[in-house]
Every structure is written in C-alpha cells, then in structure tokens.
Design a protein around this nucleic acid. Structure first.
Ligand SMILES: [Zn+2]
Length: 324
DNA sequence: CGAATTTGACCTGCGC
DNA sequence: GCGCAGGTCAAATTCG
C-alpha cells in the first residue's frame, strides 16, 4: 500500500529582472529541477490550460493534494515565490536543461511592438454626434491610447479551503466570471486603497479543488493597512529574506518587492498550529545544483547539510522530511 | 445608512 | 465579420 512516493511540489516563481520569467523549482522531482517558463505569459489571459500544461510538465498529478493534506491541517501555503536580487537574468540563458518546459505562449500578449507602425493612429472614431440616443451605450473603457500594458503577474498556488486568502491588503471585489473548463469561478479584486491599481484574481484549481490560485498584478504604492499589520507574522520571516532588499529602494518597480510584500502579507494566515511553510528557495542559477546536492545530502544523512543556508533556513524541516 | 458584494451588460482581443 | 472568452463596469442588492 501506499508505496506512492510522496512528493512535495513547490512552485517557485523566481522572477527575472524583467519580471517576466520565472523559474519553477520542484525539490523532489529531480526531473523538473530547473524548469523555467514565462509565468506571465502563461497566465496571460488564458488559464487553466496553462496551468494544466504546467502541472503535466512537472508530473504533478491530482494526487498531489494528498501530499499537502498530510502536511497541514488548516490552510498552509504550498508555494511561495523566491526572490532574487538581480543576478537572475542568467537563468534564462544559461539553463537550457533537459526538462525545460518553456510554455511558449509568449507572444500571446506581450509583443511590445509587433505592430508599432500603425499603433498610434488607432483612434476609435466614436464621435458621431448625430444621434443623441447613442449615449445609452455605456461607453466605458478609456479610449485614449490606453495600452493595456499588463504588468507582470505573480501567481501563487495555495492549498486552502477558503478562496480569499488574507494577504494583508484590503480588496474590493469587482467581478466574477466563470472559467472555461472549470466548475469554479474566478473572482476579480482590486486594492481598495485609492491611487493603488493593484489587482488580483482568485480562482480554484479545477483539478485540485483544494488549491487556490491567486494572481497578483501590479504593486502597491502604499504600506499595508495598519489594522492588519499587527498580526502580520513578520517575525516569522527568515532573516535572509528580510534583511537584503538591495534593489531599487524607492521605486518598487517589479517582482521582488511585490513578492516581498505579498509574502509578508500572506504570512498572516499562518496560525500558530505548527509552522506554516513558506519555501523560499532562492533557486537562482547557481543554486539549482546546490539544491540538488542539498537534497541528496539530506536523503543520505537524514539531516540538512552544513551550510548554504537558504533553504533550510527557511523551510520548516517538516517540508523536507517526507520519508514515510 | 454607507460600504461592500452581486450580477448581468458591456468591451476587447483573438481565432475561425 | 462573428462568436467566444477574459476582463471590467455599475446598478441593484445585501451586509454591517
Ligand atoms: Zn494597494
């Protein structure tokens, strides 16, 4: 019985400097050690299909949820983003390993200038002053040169019974749509802080109903609401995670900061019942090997390797000892 | 009674 | 050009 090898799947979106590329790291599935893909692209507009392919590529099966449940009881996060200072760009080029997934949906929505030629001329002629009744039309949408330049998106897969996870910010729901191929709807939220344009989508995986997929878009231009900050388990954070923060200080431009904030926020729901897990595998280029080695080491010695810090510094041991 | 959510209409991009 | 799917708006409704 059992004999099914337990695997813990940690999706570790490690973002590139451009905020578009992410690296997925699966500590147990040796095959998928260093796969990478453009998360942004994959999540672009589509949805579950992309996730599906992602899961397949990782050998992630519906049964994975079982693994999770064995770990926690309430609601613990399953995946977290690891942030890298800036040397990440190498990942893209360097790694071209066996199992690179490269979910090529790239140009789907990111082309910056495929049509730049006639782009600006595109003024919607909605003038037509003739009929007054035309006003009935809602005519929302900013007609202007509104380049819908979507900001990088960050997705988290979290095992949770509740759809809306507490992340420290205040959100106002502004929409809900049915998701194709999924019985679960997708909810659209917007940060309630004025002037803040951060949005997030929440949907439940149609394959693993226990998993909630939360996608953030944009970054907050304000601190967390003080009301919620108190309980925010900032202290829970690994020192290595909190201290650094080297990059652009005042211009929270991209992923790193975002992740930081999100993580800080979402640590919230890690109620004291035993170490919620956040895995900050800083799986950057040089680290893929590290991590593998570390794991092997662990498997052989049944304990963490001497140094290299990062992982076990952060990862609750329970996450790593998966022995039956 | 004000704030947040619900929910169908509406808009936009894309593929056929 | 049409229809589909994702995303947004906003009036109506519910919530606190
Ligand atoms: Zn905000």
């Amino acid at each position: 019985m059992s004999d099914k090898p337990r695997d813990h799947f940690y999706y570790n979106p490690a973002f590139n400097t451009d905020g578009k590329t992410s690296t997925y790291y699966n500590p147990r599935a040796a095959s998928a050690v260093s796969s990478y893909m453009s998360l942004t692209d994959c999540l672009h507009t589509t949805t579950s299909m992309d996730y599906t392919s992602l899961e397949k590529a990782f050998g992630l099966s519906p049964s994975s949820s079982e693994v999770f449940s064995s770990i926690e009881g309430n609601q613990k996060q399953v995946s977290v983003a690891g942030d890298l200072g800036g040397a990440s760009s190498e990942i893209m080029t360097t790694t071209t390993p066996n199992s690179s997934i490269s979910c090529s949906s790239s140009e789907a929505g990111v082309e910056e200038d495929s049509d730049k030629t006639k782009k600006e001329e595109q003024s919607p002629k909605e003038s037509v002053d003739g009929g007054g009744e035309s006003s009935k039309k809602v005519n929302k949408g900013k007609k202007k040169a509104d380049k819908k330049q979507r900001e990088p998106r960050v997705a988290f897969m979290t095992k949770s019974e509740v759809d809306h996870l507490e992340d420290g910010y205040r959100w106002r729901k502004y929409g809900q749509k049915a998701v194709k191929n999924s019985p679960y709807p997708r909810s659209y939220y917007r940060c309630t802080t004025q002037k803040c344009t951060v949005k997030k989508r929440v949907e439940r995986s149609y394959q693993d109903p226990s998993v909630v997929i939360t996608t953030y878009e944009g970054q907050h231009n304000h601190p967390l609401p003080t009301t919620l900050r108190g309980s925010s388990a900032v202290g829970f954070f690994p020192p290595s995670m909190l201290t650094p923060m080297p990059m652009m200080g005042a211009t929270p431009s991209f992923p790193h900061e975002l992740l930081m904030q999100i993580n800080q926020g979402r640590m919230n729901f890690s109620q004291g019942s035993g170490a919620a897990g956040s895995i900050y595998a800083q799986n950057v280029n040089p680290f893929n090997q590290y991590q593998q080695q570390q794991q092997q080491y662990q498997q052989h010695h049944d304990q963490v390797p001497p140094d290299y810090g990062l992982l076990q510094d952060i990862v609750p041991s329970m996450f790593f000892k998966h022995e039956p």
